[in-house]
Design a protein around this nucleic acid. Structure first.
Length: 450
RNA sequence: CGGGGCGUAGCGCAGCCUGGUAGCGCGACGGUUUUGGGUACCGUAGGCCGGAGGUUCGAAUCCUCUCGCCCCGACCA
């Protein structure tokens, strides 16, 4: 993309309403625009990152064998009366009346709808196991939205639901989700630690939430420092293998890691003191096993091999997709701006032309731009007639992980400069070398994709 | 929902107390200059001062109501 043809309304000054760094940077980088309290438009670059995160989630769900669907944002109140949650959910649920005076609502979650779909079309144990999921907008009418997309009222969320015949099968689905979530977060450049959690309004006796450590996190967390050494990495896993998934769950949940909701000081104090950590975390996902809570109240049953009708075992699983942009920025930025991890960056590299209008730098930039695109990379070419300082400031602010600087001085020796946003390290090399170096850098990202 | 604060140009703000018909910086646009970390100078455009009502000869300014937004708290992915 050429910057002069793009729409990226960056701000030089901090908008006063933004208090935390991710909110400030998303506004300054021209990624979002607030339309109303807790409700945002996604501008091109914000949308790009949002889409990349969605893509990772889709790919990892596919890998785990989960099937995508798309359910409506507006739901009938009747379904919620059936489950008993219409009255329980409270004022967080946005209630709407249509022209026929029917009670509707903007879905804050989808257990009712998915259960309705299931009971309409699934009736035999032979159709199980089944996990359906979607990435869809939700609305929760928070009393006080804040922190930009970290706690908006409208938010994009992946929600998945597993249906199984037995408790053991449902627990395997739970484990499978845990593994797929670990992989997803790592591809986004995040370390999200599974912590024992509280059921909340969804209920359930077995649940973990995934937290990204960051100073601005909303939850206080307590953990054994050994847990931060764990990496899922690129290990191969058979999602159908109960043993393999169980082993991963045990590996990632055996050490102490809890939020303040479930924290138990007596157990925590048994950890050697030098490994005890207290920090803050941002919740970016949660997985639940809740058994037959919804299937019983809503009549989602299957006929088992013995000919008896039995309520299905269920769980639900969420990833806060839009919130993840905030979480990633909270975990990865400096005083100049965002630092995108390679897995989610809106553009893989920025090309900075130091002397726009100069025949040799212009043509060198154009050649680089074309070459990078031909290698499957997506560069942002800053072709504005601006001074070097302004271009550097912009590319730093928007957080592209790599920058190629092209100026007459270097070009005289066939050199450009390749700079890492994260380390600031700059190396002179030929344009061809810069391209191959970038291809190399992004190879793991390509390899991780399906 | 309790407590606090703010709505004046795209963004950040001054002016309001002590009423007299709106200003600064950044940004935008045009030009000159400059050119390896937000260059300097000159010029131009842009605002029914959140909205409604009232007081007054006259309201951004005073009064009443209202809408929106932000912060702290309780709540929450």
């Amino acid at each position: 993309m050429r910057l002069t043809r793009y729409f990226m309304p960056v701000l030089k000054e901090d908008p006063k309403e933004a208090q935390i760094v991710s909110h400030r940077l998303m506004l300054r980088a021209g990624m979002i625009k607030q339309q109303s309290a807790g409700i945002y438009s996604w501008l091109p670059m914000g949308l790009k990152v949002l889409n990349r995160i969605q893509q990772i989630v889709h790919e990892e769900q596919a890998r785990a064998g989960h099937i995508p669907v798309l359910m409506p944002t507006i739901q009938s109140a009747d379904l919620w009366r059936e489950s008993g949650r219409y009255d329980d959910y409270g004022e967080e649920m946005l209630r709407i009346t249509d022209r026929h005076k029917r009670d509707m609502l903007y879905g804050p979650t989808n257990e009712e709808v998915i259960t309705d779909i299931f009971r309409a079309h699934v009736s035999s144990y032979k159709d199980l196991p089944l996990t359906l999921y979607q990435i869809q907008w939700k609305f929760r009418d928070e009393i006080r939205p804040r922190f930009g997309v970290m706690r908006g009222r409208e938010f994009l969320m992946k929600d998945g639901y597993n249906f199984d015949l037995t408790r053991d099968a449902a627990l395997h689905a739970y484990n499978r989700h845990l593994v797929s979530y670990l992989r997803s977060y790592e591809r986004m450049g995040l370390q999200a630690i599974p912590m024992r959690a509280d059921g909340g309004p969804i209920g359930g006796d077995y649940t973990h939430e995934f937290l990204v450590l960051a100073e601005t996190g909303e939850s206080e967390v307590f953990y054994d420092s050994e847990i931060t050494d764990l990496k899922f990495g690129s290990r191969a896993i058979d999602y159908d293998s109960v043993e393999q998934c169980q082993a991963v769950l045990e590996e990632f949940t055996s050490r102490y890691a809890r939020t303040d909701e479930t924290h138990d000081a007596a157990i925590f104090d048994q950890i050697p003191e030098e490994r005890r950590r207290t920090a803050r975390g941002i919740e970016v996902g949660q997985i639940f096993y809740f058994g037959t809570k919804y299937s019983e109240s809503m009549g989602a049953t299957v006929v088992g091999p013995d000919g008896n009708r039995t309520p299905v075992e269920m769980g639900s699983h969420g990833i806060g997709v839009s919130r993840l942009l905030g979480a990633i920025i909270e975990a990865s930025h400096d005083d100049k701006g965002i630092i995108w991890p390679e897995g989610v960056t809106p553009f893989e590299v920025g090309i900075v032309n130091l002397k726009q209008g100069d025949a040799s730098t212009d043509s060198a930039c154009e050649a680089l731009y074309a070459e990078l695109k031909s290698k499957g990379l997506d560069p942002l070419y800053d072709d504005r007639d601006e001074r070097a300082g302004a271009k550097f400031a912009t590319v730093d602010l928007i957080g592209l992980p790599w920058r190629i600087t092209v100026g007459p001085r270097g070009l005289a020796n066939n050199k450009v400069e390749l700079t890492s946003r994260r380390t600031g390290e700059a190396v002179e090399m030929s344009p061809q070398e810069a391209v191959s170096r970038l291809v190399e850098v992004y190879q793991p990202v390509k390899d991780a994709a399906l």
